[in-house]
């Protein structure tokens, strides 16, 4: 039987990995949506945002359909010894997909707030497009990007629906929400769930607090 501490550590590992995977990808997508126009942009934005409103169970189902053990992707992963579905890795993927819209939206807004005039000024100072992104655009949007990452991290910590379908409620992938769900299904389980419920509340509240502080800093910087 796993201890509450192990469950908490697994949750933190899953959410952290999901956020780390999302950060470069979500930053790139947010930048793309704020700075470039290309055919299919609206369709792509829609696809990325769908998990925001889709029942997470359905998102999990689609993940199984696309990445499950009997799909080409699933078989390819198996052949290199990386099982995805029904492992803790599936929990990471499920959390990442469900959290992605929160990050992409925050990054999109953050980049939109960076005046392209600064990028032109850098262009006239012989900067190339990479230098402009890493020295000007990203630092000026940094608070918004971090705020989005914190929100995505919090969402990943709370992820339940897609995870229980794609990773299933096995010990290897039992994050806090899944463990709480399991406890509450047992007789007298509420006693065991209390600590995890409390930890969830503290982590969620802390994340929102940090997010709010960052957003306030952005507002002050703009004023």
């Amino acid at each position: 039987m796993t201890t509450n501490l192990q469950i908490l550590l697994l949750s933190l590992k899953v959410a952290t990995l999901a956020t780390l995977i999302l950060l470069p990808l979500g930053t790139f997508l947010g930048w793309l949506f704020s700075r470039k126009s290309f055919p299919g942009k609206t369709l792509l934005e829609g696809l990325i945002n769908v998990p925001l409103v889709l029942p997470p169970i359905v998102t999990g189902y689609f993940l199984l359909v696309v990445l499950g053990p009997n799909t080409p992707v699933g078989r390819a992963m198996q052949s290199i010894g990386l099982e995805l579905a029904f492992t803790w890795r599936a929990a990471v993927v499920a959390s990442a997909v469900v959290s992605m819209p929160l990050l992409v939206r925050a990054v999109h807004v953050a980049f939109e707030a960076v005046d392209p005039k600064f990028e032109d000024a850098a262009r006239m100072l012989r900067a190339n497009e990479w230098q402009i992104f890493f020295k000007i655009t990203l630092p000026l949007a940094a608070n918004g990007v971090i705020a989005g990452a914190v929100l995505a991290f919090a969402r990943a910590l709370g992820e339940f629906g897609a995870t229980i379908v794609f990773a299933s409620n096995i010990e290897d992938a039992r994050t806090m929400p899944l463990a709480i769900f399991s406890y509450l299904n047992q007789v007298d389980g509420e006693q065991h769930a209390k600590l995890l419920i409390f930890a969830s509340m503290v982590l969620a509240y802390l994340s929102i607090l940090i997010n709010e502080l960052l957003l306030r800093r952005i507002k002050n910087a703009q004023a």
């Binding site: 000024a121 850098a122 006239m124 100072l125 900067a127 190339n128 000007i136 000026l140």
Partner: peptide, 18 residues
């Protein structure tokens, strides 16, 4: 622009605020 050897001072100085 970066290969034109041209400098540009804008109306609003456009100093990088960070």
């Amino acid at each position: 622009p970066r290969n034109r050897n041209i400098g540009y001072v804008f109306q609003e100085s456009r100093l990088f605020p960070h």
